[in-house]
Write a protein that binds this DNA or RNA. Sequence first.
DNA 1: GTGAAAGCGCTAACAG
DNA 2: CTGTTAGCGCTTTCAC
Lengths: 336, 336
Amino acid sequence: MATIKDVAKRAGVAISTVSAVINRSAPASQAVIARVERAIAEIGYMPHRAAQTLRSGQSRVIGLIVPDITNPHFSTVARVTERVCMAAGYMTFVYNTGEDTDHEMQIIKMMRMQSVAGLILISTRSDAAHGARLMAEINVPAVLMGSHVQGVPFDVITLDEVRAGQLAIRHLLDLGHRRIGVISGRTGVSTHEERLEGVRVAFAERGLRLDEDLVVPANFAEGEAFDAARQLLNRRAPPTAIMTLSILMTVGLMRSLVAMQLTSPRDVSIIGIDDFDWAAIMNPQPCAIAQPIVEMTEVAIATLLDQIETGKPPSGRRLLFEPKLVVRASCAPVLV
Amino acid sequence: MATIKDVAKRAGVAISTVSAVINRSAPASQAVIARVERAIAEIGYMPHRAAQTLRSGQSRVIGLIVPDITNPHFSTVARVTERVCMAAGYMTFVYNTGEDTDHEMQIIKMMRMQSVAGLILISTRSDAAHGARLMAEINVPAVLMGSHVQGVPFDVITLDEVRAGQLAIRHLLDLGHRRIGVISGRTGVSTHEERLEGVRVAFAERGLRLDEDLVVPANFAEGEAFDAARQLLNRRAPPTAIMTLSILMTVGLMRSLVAMQLTSPRDVSIIGIDDFDWAAIMNPQPCAIAQPIVEMTEVAIATLLDQIETGKPPSGRRLLFEPKLVVRASCAPVLV
DNA sequence: GTGAAAGCGCTAACAG
DNA sequence: CTGTTAGCGCTTTCAC
């Protein structure tokens, strides 16, 4: 492999000049710049990243930590992250927590070993104890997506979660549903808490109340949602509509319907937070609350890269994005 | 950040001893090992990866290059890779080619800058010119998945592609279909060529011939498959069944049916190579040729890590895995 | 602009 | 086992 020394020799300049040209860290004449760049091209020189990292204490790599890359919602986040980071000259490590907090911490440790320049984190918990642990382990700029965490100063890029829950329930109430089941996530995660709060708000604004007995937690997991749905639908007075708080749980619910040979919306209306790219080929075509996930990801990364490059401290703000109701066949008026 | 020097001081041993203990690169007494390990734990020491990489010339990172991480087939590959590599003490860079050869080469360059220890590559082309370019850029152990490439010595982990095409067409022929449309990939990629060969073989073994006029290329892309399907189904004598050569193209086909208000299998039977985790909630439930993708990925990584750690040259073998027909509702007997 | 030199944290080699 | 040393490729500083 060619080194910076080889470039210097070939271009007939000093090593420090080559470095200055590459990093634009010191002025150089046009003639010198041209000579250096030609030499770089001729011998196919590429800076040795590990050497740069060792010397500068910072790699041009950012870490993206998501719950599960096989969830299409997060694979989109990963794809956008790759594109935006590459354009800015950064590489990306993508890792999955599997909704497991210990694993999340382990990944953060690995990221730290790699001297990542920054982190995009979709965290598994929102409580202060977790926040304290994060602060002890994260020593680089970071941006939270999705859930927020108490006691950390990072910016948060998130859906208006309350409104998302509210939009979904409003739609069901508008269609006349009153016995509404909710397949929820996990206590202690802000996305769970706030989406559920939106559900309650939507009931309250009509002078109604959510039947808490019809709220079944499923840990944001497909398998648990499958069971939760079955349990809800096997009750003596089953709900006429079911809402889920996330995409994989919608899949679990839909699978349950198939297994129980029920049809939506005939037997039950369903709606979930998070939309599907493949909604058109699903049965039923699911009514959903969509997030502007591409835009959110772009903003998250722009925010992170800005903090990395300027050294600015995080603003600590929560940036809320608007959820949007996407009406599809899976919700029908309740039978009177 | 604590360094190896701090550990040595705290444990009261030499730096070289700490290194020896960490890497098991030289014998050490139990007592010394214990002291060192305690010191490491106490000060929370972690080796500085960039320093190790710079010194050893090799990072403990492998690169995984896939067409598109938002394709569930490849997100599974990524997930398995992460798990297996982490267990072996490696990290993973996952990158998307988007089926673009120039981008593939660019990614390989980036990987090289990072001194990755090895590569898992799902390549965009199979021809010798591409092979030569790869050989010029890849200077580490590598394993190919999916497509193979002429003129490269790497091991290849792949489906028995011919058989996959054969199984699909046999199933359609068994159901009485004769006018069978094929939505294919891209000339010059082995997965395309071999799956198509399997199609022809299946016709031939019944004394029939594939109508080449019904083969429409779609570049393994959903959008192009959408158009291809529409075009096939709008013909004067449309096929009674359509097969696709990959999962995204099956999605494109199914979307086309929705857009044209056609129903499968009533209006047309469909089958595709690659199975869906979410088949149960799709409409129609797609008949598919499944790959043992988890097992294939595990083997690919085991092969790669073995070559990395032993320095063994690749065997250059193709390891073929058995495709499996998964019968679902989307294929019905042809109407007589 | 040059050229020399220090040092990031680690590994490996060597003499004791 | 210790203690020392060189050096991986780079950035940065400093005197010129």
